[in-house]
Write a protein that binds this DNA or RNA. Sequence first.
RNA 1: GCCGACGUAGCUCAGUGGCUAGAGCGGUGCUUUUGUAAAGCACGGGUCGUGGGUUCGAAUCCCUCCGUCGGCUCCA
Length: 613
Amino acid sequence: MKNDNHLEAMRHSLAHIMASAVLKLWPHAKFGVGPTIDNGFYYDIDLGETTISQEDFVNIEKEMKVIIKSDQPFILSEKSIDAAITWAKEAKQPYKEELLNDLKRAGTTKVKNIDSDELGIINSIESKLDKVTFYQNGDFIDLCRGPHLKSTGEVGAFKLTKIAGAYWRGKDSNPQMQRLYGVAFETEGELKDYLDNLEDAKNFDHRKLGQELDLFLISPLVGSGLPLFTPRGTVLRDELNKYSQELRKKIGYKNVWTPHIAKQKLYEMSGHWEKFGSEWLSVKSQESHDNLVLKPMNCPHHQQIYASKQRSYRDLPIKYMETTTDYRDEKAGELLGLSRVRSITQDDSHIFCTSEQIDRCLSDLVEVVREFYKTLDMDLEVRLSFRDETDKYLGEANLWTKAEKMIKDVVESKKLKYYIAKGDAAFYGPKIDFIAKDLQGRELQLATPQLDFVQPQRFGLKYTDENGQEQTPVMIHFALMGSIERFLAAYIEHTKGKFPVWLAPEQVRLITVNQEKQTLKFANEILNKAIGFDLRIEVDNSNQSVGKKIRESELYKVPYTVVIGEKEIKSGKIQPRIREDLTKSKKETNIGIEEFIKIVTDESKSKSLSSSL
RNA sequence: GCCGACGUAGCUCAGUGGCUAGAGCGGUGCUUUUGUAAAGCACGGGUCGUGGGUUCGAAUCCCUCCGUCGGCUCCA
C-alpha cells in the first residue's frame, strides 16, 4: 500500500521532471521554487523575453514523458553552501543563488511565516545547516531538500493544468515569473476522478447557481464588482441579515445608521487613509472644502456616535450594529463573483468596553458565531490573525501582546480548534477569523471579531471610571457574516442552492392542473389562509403540462410543490411534494391546508434544516 | 495592476477567410385543459464584446480598449 509520503515524493519529483522538460525546450530558463501543493505541484519559471502559453503544454508533457520513460534515477548529493552558491552562479540560476544566500545568512528561505511553532522548528534545524542537498535526474540538477522517488519512471498519472503569473517570493515589487501548475495522482483512475470532480463542482459554483436560481447578476453597464440582487436573492439577503441582527440584539447590540459618504479627514484620523486611501472612491461636491469619499468601512462613524456624549463606566459596554454597504475600488483582477466585490454589505458592529469586559464580550461573540453557523450547518476553520515582525501595525507592542493573549485564551476556553497566522492581523489589532472554503478550496473569511486598542486612542474616545478618572475604551469590531455578498458566495455553494425553508426565496409553489375557474379559486383560498403567516407562496397557473410545471419548481429548488386540481378541491386536502434533501420518507402525505401552513410557518421560525412533514 | 485563457441570440453552445451566421432551451402567439421532472405548431430574437487594421472578402487573422474566468499581489 502506497502512502502519502510516496504521493508527496511523486508530486515533488514531477516538479523536477517538468523543470527538466522546460529546460530542454528553453535552455535559458531560470528557476524559482517548485513545491508540492494540494493535489499536485508547480514550478516558478522565468524565461526572460519569451513566455510559456497553454499551447506549449503538449510539448512540455511530451518531453516529460520521454524523461519518465527513460527512467532516470534521482541522485542525491551534498554541497557546502559556498560550493552551492558557486554552482548557482555558474549555472546562471540567479533565483537559486538568492535562496542559497538567504540559507547561508538566515538559515531559512522562508519569507512569510505561517505558523510560529513550525517556523521555530525549521529555524532550529536549518540555522545549523552548512550543507545543502541536490537532486539530479539526467542533466537536470536542482537544489532541493527532497524527498524524491528512486527514479523518474515511478511517477504516476499527471496533467499540466494551468499557467499563472507569480511574483518572485510573493512580492509585487519583484519580477514576475510564470508558475506552471500540474496535478498528479498514483493512478490514471484517481487523476480522472479528480478532474471529473472538479468539473462537477462547477455546477455548484455560486455564480452559476446565482443565474440559474435567479438570485443576482452583474450588469456590465452598472459595473464590475457591483452585483445586483433580484427579488429572490434579496430574500436571502434580508432573512440572513434579520437573523444576524437578531442574535446580536440578544447580547445588547442596538441599531445605528450612518451615511455612505464622509470626509477624508475622518479616515486620516482613524489611520485607514494612509494604509488604504489609494483604494477608495472619491466623491465630488459642488463646493467642497474637504475631500469626500464613499465610505470604505464603518468603524470611524460608529466611533463618532460614541464620542457624541460623555460616557460613564456604567454605560459600558456600548454596542452598535449596522448592516450597510461600503465601497472599495478593488483592482479588476481581484474581483471574483460575490466573494470579492466593490460594493460590500457588512453586517458590521462595534463594541466599546473597558479592558475588564473584553473577555466576556469576546466570549459572547464566539457563541453568536457558533449559533449562527450551527443553524446554517456550516463548519468553519478558526484562524487567529496576529501581527508579525513588520512595521505595518499601529499601537503599542505590549497592548498587542496582551490582546493576542486574550484572543487565544477565549478561543481555547471555547475549545475551538485553531491555527495562528502571523502577519494577517488588521493594522489596529489582532482578530479571530472564521473561514469557509469555496468549492475550489479558496478561503473565504466570514465572521470576524477584532480587538482594537488603536482607534479609540486616535479619536480620543473616553469614559469616566469609578474613581472619576478618564479612561480610553477598547473597541471590538465584529461582523457575523463578514459581508453578505461573500457569505452568500460560500453559502450558495455550501447548500448547492437547496436553501432551508426559512431561507428559501419561494417556500411553496402551487401548481394548477388546469385553468378552470374553480382551480384558481382554490389556489386563492390557500393564499388567503396563509395571510398573516409571512410565507412566500407563488402560484403557477400557466398553460403548461403539470409535468413541466413540476420540473420548473424542482429546478428552482422550491421546498414544497403542491399540485391542485379536482381531487384537492373535492377533499380540501393537499399532497405537498417535498424537495428531496428535506425529507427521508417518500411517503405521500395527505394534509389539510391549515395544518400545512402551520408546519411551514413553524419550520420558518425554528430555522429547521429538514421537513417535518 | 500583473501572467495566461476566453468573449457568437435572454441561457447553453455550434460555426477557423467565401452565399442572407445556426441549434436546443427560454420568450411571444395559436392549438391543447393537462395529475407529480420537458405537449404540438408557428413567430420573433444577433453591430458575432468595442474601436481600429490586414484582405477582393473577416465571427474567423493582427492591434487597442472593455468584460469574464484561472492564478499572483492585495484584502480595513
